[in-house]
């Protein structure tokens, strides 16, 4: 479904991603694990067309999408939840959902409120006044409004209390049942392992490991060297 082939991404002059390749197939949750500054968010931004790669190609459903504008990618079925959430602070929860582009009727506000009942109770609250956990739910809900086939989920558990993390995990699993594909970046390996079926480990802008969940769990060296667990 998504295929990233040897991309190199820069911020100005600094070379951040080196020959990063990865794939996500229909209906799977793939983990992109790495420490702070490893390049997870940059990979997400590269795919989403926000920081387009200088080299390499990206395809989605077998069509090239390298360097396409973000809004066109949403219309093709990719949705993005940034690591810093970026809910629209001036808009209400309801309006945050409402302004999102909708590809079809699969998802609507009611369905988002069903998934995250907490949000339903604070529909008219300003996005800027939400707690971290509520903002994360809103960011995910907002992304879902476009009825994506692929969700780029960047460190959803960052800065959230364990209880809320567990809630969020449940909801992500519910999403998986709907057949959506997810590229999930995480530092919180413990949480990620409950959700994903395949693993990429990124460090210093390079993919250091790729394999099944079982391979990863067995590979103490990789875990120790790049994730310090």
């Amino acid at each position: 479904m998504l295929s990233v082939n040897g991309i190199h991404t820069f911020y100005g002059l600094s070379h951040i991603l080196f020959d990063v390749s990865l794939t996500v197939s229909q209906g799977e949750i793939v983990g992109l694990l790495g420490r702070n500054g490893a390049g997870k968010s940059t990979t997400m931004r590269s795919i989403m067309g926000l920081t387009p790669p200088r080299q390499g190609t990206i395809t989605f459903k077998a069509e090239p999408i390298t360097r396409q504008k973000a809004f066109l990618l949403v219309r093709r079925g990719i949705a993005y939840v940034p690591d810093d959430r970026r809910v629209f602070a001036d808009l209400s929860v309801d309006d945050n959902l409402e302004i999102t582009f909708r590809r079809n009727e699969d998802w609507n506000k009611e369905r988002v409120y069903d998934l995250f009942p907490v949000l339903g109770e604070i529909k008219s609250r300003r996005g800027g006044n939400l707690s971290g956990g509520e903002q994360q739910m809103l960011a995910v809900g907002r992304a879902l409004m476009s009825s994506p086939e692929l969700l780029l989920l960047d460190e959803p558990t960052e800065g959230l209390a364990p209880l809320i993390v567990r809630d969020l995990e449940k909801q992500i699993l519910k999403l998986r049942e709907t057949g959506i594909s997810i590229l999930l970046s995480e530092q919180n390996v413990k949480s990620a392992l409950k959700l994903i079926s395949r693993v990429y480990v990124i460090d210093n802008g390079r993919i250091r490991f790729e394999g099944s969940l079982a391979d990863f769990e067995a590979n103490e060296e990789i875990k120790k060297k790049y994730l310090m667990i």
Partner: peptide, 9 residues
């Protein structure tokens, strides 16, 4: 940027 990333031109 984020407005673009929710599909709006």
């Amino acid at each position: 940027e984020m407005v673009g990333a929710v599909g709006i031109n």
